[in-house]
């Protein structure tokens, strides 16, 4: 709700937290039927709509995984992957992640069918990577526990391995970052890692992918993982939505025109959608160009030129964002800003929150408030300014992150070192 001066948002505390039961959105709500598109329901892995994950991570655990993903993304921009311990110590409290894991933790998943007859699998979708893979029988080396039955290629009539000599095999490196291998039977072997030991290795294969009952993709190239480790929770694998040619976006270019969209729900107890093809929906769209962030091709780079708090542009020199560069990533939970930008955001936001009592820091979030005495609060609006004049206002749930009503924090974190 916008308060009279339109530079502040009225946020109801209850709206920041998931409810016990799931509120599904009507899948047709945003579909414009006349155009070719395919819409999948998006659920948050750790909410009541989810796949019944064993246990949700605490905020601190989530932020540790989130920081590891951010470190890994930064390492790609710094030219080489550094061992985790050489990266700067993060503010996130160190919780030993079990078997590796930085697929990140803010996982949004969709249900797709694979093979003939189709078998349903819950896959994480990730704009920060390109390869789609799932765990496959016989799990020659290792499969982590997943909710859905592990995909069995032997039971599908449309499955085939890609041979080492196939051009599809040669193109793997740009999408996974690793040279493909070759098995004794001349089958193409892929390997992908997501940072700090989480990875998937297996056969690069072709299969029929069913997005919805009416949208079936034949000869879809994906990874059939025989050795998979990481805290992917109960998800069966991952859908890569990056810009490499092995991404589902490029593989379905003819059908969907290289357009996809998603909406991530306010809380983990409601659902969103992932749509392939040009879908209508949510009002007029404001566009900004995709740029190549610092020459790392597969990420979706954006040109942020500034930010506004409470309707006023905050003092950040334009060079701050042009030096750091910026990407948008569905797999990173908390937005990371260059240090100067974060400190300007923090001080402007604090000025607009003086009436509320402070609360202790929450891991990487250092600007927190005790709002347990309020049913609703009035907070300064926060907006991103992109080159070309596009200005995007954030929802209240995009400005505040609540671990509990007595610890509600500004949902941004500063990078440590401007060059990252």
């Amino acid at each position: 709700k916008i308060s009279p001066d339109s530079h502040h948002l009225t946020v109801e505390l209850a709206g920041l937290f998931p409810s016990a039961s799931c509120t599904r959105r009507s899948p047709q709500a945003h579909i414009s039927s006349q155009r070719e598109q395919s819409s999948l329901e998006v659920i948050h892995r750790h909410g009541p709509c989810g796949v019944g994950d064993s246990k949700s991570p605490t905020a601190a655990e989530m932020f540790v995984q989130d920081q590891a993903r951010v470190d890994f993304i930064n390492s790609k921009f710094s030219g080489k992957f550094k061992a985790m311990d050489s990266l700067r110590p993060s503010k996130a409290t160190k919780i030993p992640a079990k078997s590796g894991a930085t697929i990140g933790s803010g996982n949004y998943i969709v249900n797709v069918g694979l093979g003939t007859p189709k078998k349903y699998l819950s896959l994480i979708f990730d704009t920060g990577s390109d390869l789609t893979w799932t765990q496959c029988e016989p799990c020659a080396r290792y499969c982590y526990d997943q909710k859905d039955p592990v995909f069995a290629p032997s039971q599908s009539t449309t499955y085939s391995n890609i041979t080492c000599s196939s051009p599809d095999c040669a193109q793997l490196e740009s999408g996974t970052g690793n040279q493909p291998g070759c098995s004794a039977a001349k089958s193409c072997i892929y390997g992908i890692q997501y940072g700090d030991q989480s990875f998937s290795v297996g056969y690069f294969a072709k299969e029929t992918l069913t997005l919805t009952s009416t949208d079936v993709i034949d000869n879809f190239l994906f990874g059939c993982g025989q050795n998979n480790r990481g805290l992917f929770g109960s998800a069966a694998g991952l859908i890569g939505l990056g810009q490499d040619k092995i991404s589902i976006v490029k593989q379905t270019a003819q059908k969907y025109g290289q357009i996809f969209s998603y909406c991530l729900p306010k809380t983990s107890s409601s659902t969103g959608y992932l749509t392939f093809g040009s879908g209508g929906g949510g009002g007029a769209l404001k566009y900004t160009p995709i740029i190549e962030a610092h020459g790392v091709a597969n990420f979706y780079g954006l040109n942020i030129v500034g930010m506004k708090v409470g309707g006023t542009q905050i003092p950040i020199s334009p060079s701050v964002f042009s030096t750091s560069g910026a990407i948008i990533d569905s797999g990173t939970v908390i937005t990371r800003l260059p240090p100067d930008a974060y400190s300007a955001l923090k001080s402007a936001f604090q000025k607009g929150m003086v009436r509320y009592p402070k609360a202790p820091e929450l891991s990487i979030l250092d600007t927190c408030y005790d709002l347990s005495k309020y049913a609703a609060v009035s907070i300064p609006k926060v907006s991103f300014l992109f080159k070309g004049g596009t200005e995007i206002d954030l929802d209240g749930t995009g400005i505040l992150y609540g671990a509990s009503t007595d610890q509600v924090c500004l949902a941004f974190a500063g990078n440590r070192d401007p060059s990252t």
């Binding site: 290289q258 909406c263 750091s324 995009g398 990078n415």
Partner: peptide, 30 residues
């Protein structure tokens, strides 16, 4: 690198028009 995370994207309809080289944002997407 600055990274716009998924918390900040909540309720926005985020349209990746990769062929068109642009990203669109719409309010009240969900």
């Amino acid at each position: 690198i600055a990274i716009i995370g998924n918390v900040q994207q909540k309720t926005l309809q985020v349209v990746y028009d990769v062929g068109g080289g642009k990203i669109g944002f719409g309010y009240n997407g969900c």
